[in-house]
């Protein structure tokens, strides 16, 4: 078991006042709140900060912790409480953090154990009754990253998450769950999926909670996504843009032939109807043309460009720049 330096977690000194501790907690809680932060380990950091505050905000727990801190960690950072250690403070729950100790570390449990009771499931209810033993399990939220191809064709994905359940002796424990989920074709970025009954188990015969998944589409090297529409930039040669051409372009569903209209400029958008993400109303694929030049020209080509410049001498591409 590793020693937890709660002062370091909150970034305060050992002599910090309760006000300083509260201020540090509030700042870090805002920074690492999983609904606010984009950091990958925000959830863990938020739990660490909550655990540190749970101990340091309480004078009795803080005094016990300070005593243990002096007793100290071993050289390798591991920790064992002194023989016969028993907390007088214990875990009371509640307070500002609304602390659910089931998420706290083994270190916390070892020092202030006796917590993690089913009573940790707080909350009201429709009529405000919170005395009933029959209780629906919590809904669990998770995010699922999909590649565009997976969202387009549908796929089977593994989802790992944690549910809270009441174990032996009425203790609330966290249990990892692992599901294989069939994702249907045509999922959009930000779309929610509900897996009925796959959240935390109900209490006293109550219904299980659901697993609520929010889909996130991973960036694609060629396509960008706008709702159900897919955008792709397609390079064309100057003569294809000038004379018109039939070019092959990729779609997520396979290659298609696209007619580039005569006289197209860079940035012109062409719509491939129904080639976006599938659905009841499938999206479109928007092709953005980009006129590109060859890296070098032959003498013959340069001669032809000179002839072109003479033939089009009245064309001023910078006319709008007022130069």
């Amino acid at each position: 078991m590793d020693f937890k330096d709660y002062y370091a977690v909150l970034g305060v000194s050992e002599s910090a006042t309760p006000e300083e501790i509260k201020k540090a907690y509030r700042k870090l809680a805002r920074k690492y709140h999983p609904d606010v932060s984009k950091e990958a380990d925000a959830d863990t950091k938020f739990k660490d900060v909550g655990e540190a505050y749970e101990v340091l905000k309480d004078p009795e727990k803080r005094a016990e912790y300070d005593q243990l801190r002096k007793y100290g960690a071993r050289g390798d950072g591991s920790f064992e409480p002194p023989p016969g250690w028993q907390s007088g403070a214990g875990f009371g729950g509640g307070g500002y953090t609304g602390a659910d100790s089931s998420n706290f570390s083994d270190f916390f449990e070892e020092i202030f154990g006796g917590g993690r009771r089913a009573g940790g499931f707080g909350g009201g209810g429709f009529g405000g009754s919170r005395q009933s033993m029959r209780r629906r399990g919590e809904d669990v939220h998770a995010r699922l990253a999909l590649f565009l191809e997976e969202a387009y064709h549908g796929c089977e994905k593994q989802v790992q998450y944690t549910v809270q359940e009441v174990g032996d002796h009425g203790r609330v424990i966290s249990r990892p769950k692992n599901l294989k989920v069939k994702i249907p074709a045509g999922m959009r970025d930000g779309q929610h999926i509900r897996l009925k009954g796959q959240g935390s188990p109900g209490i006293g015969g109550g219904e299980n909670g659901d697993l609520l998944i929010e889909v996130e589409l991973a960036p694609h090297p060629q396509f960008s996504v706008d709702g159900r529409d897919l955008l792709i930039t397609v390079p064309v040669a100057p003569w294809e843009a000038a004379l018109g051409a039939s070019v092959t372009v990729p779609t997520v569903g396979g290659k298609v032939s696209l007619k580039v209209p005569k006289g197209s400029s860079s940035g012109r958008k062409l719509r491939l109807k129904g080639k976006g993400l599938p659905g009841k109303e499938p999206g479109d694929q928007i092709v953005v043309l980009q006129v590109v030049m060859p890296e070098s020209h032959s003498e013959e080509a340069e001669k032809l460009y000179k002839q072109l410049a003479e033939a089009e001498e009245h064309f001023d591409p910078r006319s709008k720049l007022d130069v």
């Binding site: 209810g125 069939k182 249907p184 999926i193 509900r194 897996l195 796959q198």
Partner: peptide, 27 residues
């Protein structure tokens, strides 16, 4: 491992006031 078929948030997936209170643990 269990294979679960996903239920999409189509119009059928709606919640009454009572249900949303229960799920949101609020009044």
């Amino acid at each position: 491992e269990t294979i679960v078929t996903v239920e999409l948030d189509d119009p059928a997936g709606t919640f009454t006031l009572r249900e949303i209170c229960e799920r949101g643990e609020c009044h």
